[in-house]
Structures are given as structure tokens and as C-alpha cells.
Amino acid sequence: MAVMNSGITILIQPETRAEALAVFDKTSQAHAQSNFRKTSLGIIAFAAAVALAAHVSQFDLMRLITGLPRIGDFLSGMVPRLTADNLWADLVYWYWGLDKWLYLLWTTLMMALFGAVAGTTLGAIFSLFAARNLGAPRWSVFFVKRMLEIARTVPDLVFALVFLFAFGLGPLAGVLAISLHTLGAQGKLFAEVNENVDMRPLEGVRACGGSWLDEMTVGLLPQVLPNYISYTFWRFEINVRSATIIGFVGAGGIGMELYEAISLSYFDDAGAILLLVFITVMLIDIASEALRTKISNVRAVT
């Protein structure tokens, strides 16, 4: 008896208490040894990985320590001196470019919105051909899935650099890049959602003579739509963050302005823009999360 876990089995029937304790003692030692082996192996492997990574990335603790105060200086340089008795004038001076920045921020939001909706819509269509259970041929499932995975793995900034070559500077390259990346991410996600739906409504539509398109619109869509909408909002939150940085390479939005401010050492401008971005992102997160939970509650009731 006494089948102990982690593969250590002892096949002695203990008769007396002393024997039972002896069996326990042996098993306990075996456990301690096997634990020790596993733990030390794990620690050595982990330490080796850390050491290797530190070597490859030239991680230098001294440089980090000497650099930290400079980060502090940098961050404090982002907020200009604001005096209490002249606060309004100071703020106006700090936000001298407010009109321009607000306009760029608005463009950024619109890029994120368009990317989220266009990417999600296309992703939803592609996901039909990447799901195993919706009648798409096997080669299409494989091929579309790989394409979606590539679109999801390649960062939107890389797409943006390619599109810049074709369409020149400006938001077009950025919004296409964001849409393409969104398409990949949503398509892969939705393919998984599709594979988990209840197949009975679809069979019902087919059984009364509906076409494949009828199956999708009547059988599938009502099941997955709340989910899709919820994910669209979530994607919008992510895209707002992406759209703020896509301008780093010149593909539209506030990023271009932010990049210039930081690289040309206009720290107070950078601080002003970052604060605007921070507030916008916070507000959008809160609003979008509220809408998302509202939609999923709707789903729970119906």
C-alpha cells in the first residue's frame, strides 16, 4: 500500500507503528531528495538563463545605478516651474501648442477607432474561414490561420514602415498598419470563439434549407455578436495606445510630435503631451470598460 505521489511507490504492508513510521521515513527522504534535485536543477537552469540574457543584452548594473538619477532629472524637466500666483499664465505658456496637440490627439483617436472597427469587421469575416467547425475546407483553415497569426505577430509599427514607402508620410500608413494588425489579432481570437459556439442553431438553419450564409447570419452571428462587440471595445483601448506611438515613424497622430519633443530635448513639451495622452487614455479606458461590462451583462441576461 502507501502509494505516494511523484512516482515513489512503496509496496510494503506496514504491520506495526514502528514499521509504518519507518516506511514514512524512507518515503519522506526520497521526497526530500527528489524535491532537492528538482529545485536545484530549476535554480541552476534559471540562473544560467539570467546570466546568458544579461551577457547578451550587456546588462550593466553600474550603468543602471548611475543612470537612474538622470531619469529623475529627465522626468522633473518635463514639468516646468508652475508658480501659485501666476498659475494660469504658466499653464498657458506650458501648453502653448494646445490647439495643435488636441487636433493631433483627435486624429490619433479616429485612427484607433477606424482601425478597431475595420480590423474587427474584416477579422470577423476571415475568422469564418479559419474555424474548423464552419464548413471551410481544411487547407483554408490552415492557410487563413497562418496568415492571421503572421498579421498578429508582426508589430503594427513594422507594417507602418512598409506602408510609408507606398503611401508616404501621414495617417493613412498608420491606420492601415493598425487595421492590419487588428485584423490578425481579432481574426485569430474570433476563430477560437467560433470554434466554441453551440452548433445546434446552425444545424437547425441548415435543416430547414438555409444556405451557408443563412447559417452564419442566423445561426452563428446572434451567438457571437455580443462577444465580438466587447472585444472591439477592448481592441479600441489597445489601438489608442498603438496609435499614439505609430507617429514615431511618421505615420500620423500625436506620436510624431511627441517623438520630436523628446529627441530634440523639448522636455516641457514632451511632458505636456504625455500628460494629455495620459488623461485621454485613462478616460477612454474607463468609458470603454463601462460599455464593455454593460454589453457583457446584456449577454448574460438574454
Binding site: 511523484s6 509504518a20 513510521l21 514514512f24 519522506s28
Partner: peptide
């Protein structure tokens, strides 16, 4: 310490489960 714990578990008829 482990043996003392084992003896107590034995008293309560739970020694076989010690490593679960």
C-alpha cells in the same frame, strides 16, 4: 520533526495520506 508529525498522523489514521 517530520517523524513527530508522522506519529500524530498515524494516531489519526492519516499516515498513508502524508504526501498527498
Amino acid at each position: 520533526e517530520k517523524l513527530r508529525a508522522a506519529a500524530l498522523l498515524d494516531d489519526l489514521g492519516m499516515l498513508e495520506k502524508a504526501f498527498q
